[in-house]
């Protein structure tokens, strides 16, 4: 059986049969793919720790008929801080499910950029942030951009008029982003978004790590931005992600 080595992030895992696990991996060279970890559920399996979600691993994979099989595995990073706080683990789950949902199997487009973004985001989620959703949204907007789903944030998605800070007033997931004050009231599915919210989205879109960790917007603005991006992702996936609903319930207790 031909085999290959790759670095990967474990996004999801499910048990298969009594002893095996099927992993959804994001690899640096081959994009997202499924691989089988034989015997990973057995007591004392060398594979068990390396098959946990939010773990960065180096793998030797054997090419299988339907799914590739993990023959060797080494943990590069296990992101222990993510596992110490309900907000962090909920955001890491959201991030991994988003990657697993948005990316196509073995799509090699910009796979290194996606992998590096995915790993950098997990690093960032381990850091202290005033508003922990800012680093998450930063990564999310960057991923949407790479995958071709980036929301329009600087013009009206209907008329293309450039938005000055005073007249921004709507956001439509279906139309792809922000709407001007003329078009926002005409669009039934549009969310109301204040100029402050849109300015925040624009900041998050381009901000670096230290800015993302120090942004401290008022609660109402946070809620509106969370909702806009949540609706936007839901619209593009055509479904609501389980981890998005869970994260939303955790946010309710953080406020």
């Amino acid at each position: 059986m031909p085999s290959y080595t790759t670095e990967a992030l474990v996004l999801q895992r499910r048990n298969a049969g009594e002893n095996d696990r099927i992993l959804t991996l994001l690899t640096r060279q081959h994009g997202k793919l499924s691989a089988s970890a034989k015997g990973a559920s057995k007591a004392g399996s060398r594979l068990s720790g390396a098959t946990e979600p939010f773990t960065r691993v180096r793998l030797l994979l054997a090419t299988g008929r339907s799914t590739d099989i993990i023959s060797q595995c080494e943990i590069v990073r296990s992101y222990p801080v993510l596992r110490t706080d309900i907000g962090r683990i909920a955001r890491a789950s959201y991030w991994c499910e988003l990657l697993a949902s948005l990316l196509h199997d073995r799509d090699a487009t910009e796979t290194e950029a996606v992998f590096d973004l995915a790993a950098a985001a997990l690093n960032l989620l381990e850091r202290e942030a005033v508003w922990p959703d800012a680093p998450l949204h930063g990564a999310e907007l960057r991923l949407l951009e790479i995958t071709g789903y980036a929301p329009v944030l600087h013009q009206c998605a209907i008329c293309g008029a450039s938005l000055s800070t005073e007249d921004a007033s709507g956001f439509s997931p279906a139309l792809g982003g922000t709407l001007c004050h003329t078009h926002a009231p005409q669009e039934p599915g549009a969310l109301v978004l204040t100029a402050q919210c849109i300015a925040l989205l624009q900041t998050i879109e381009t901000a670096g790590a230290s800015t993302l960790c120090s942004i401290a917007p008022p609660q109402g603005v946070r809620n509106a931005v969370n909702r806009a991006l949540r609706e936007f992702v839901r619209y593009h996936l055509g479904r609501s992600m389980g981890s998005a609903d869970f994260l939303e319930s955790i946010r309710g207790t953080e406020a």
Binding site: A43, S48, S78
Partner: peptide
């Protein structure tokens, strides 16, 4: 973590068994 975040505000002592168990086990 979810249970701890719900129980601790009620003033309950919440502990977790020290997993000498391997991660993923």
């Amino acid at each position: 973590l979810y249970l701890a975040s719900r129980l601790k505000p009620l003033g309950i002592r919440v502990t977790q068994i020290a997993h000498g168990l391997p991660a993923g086990g």
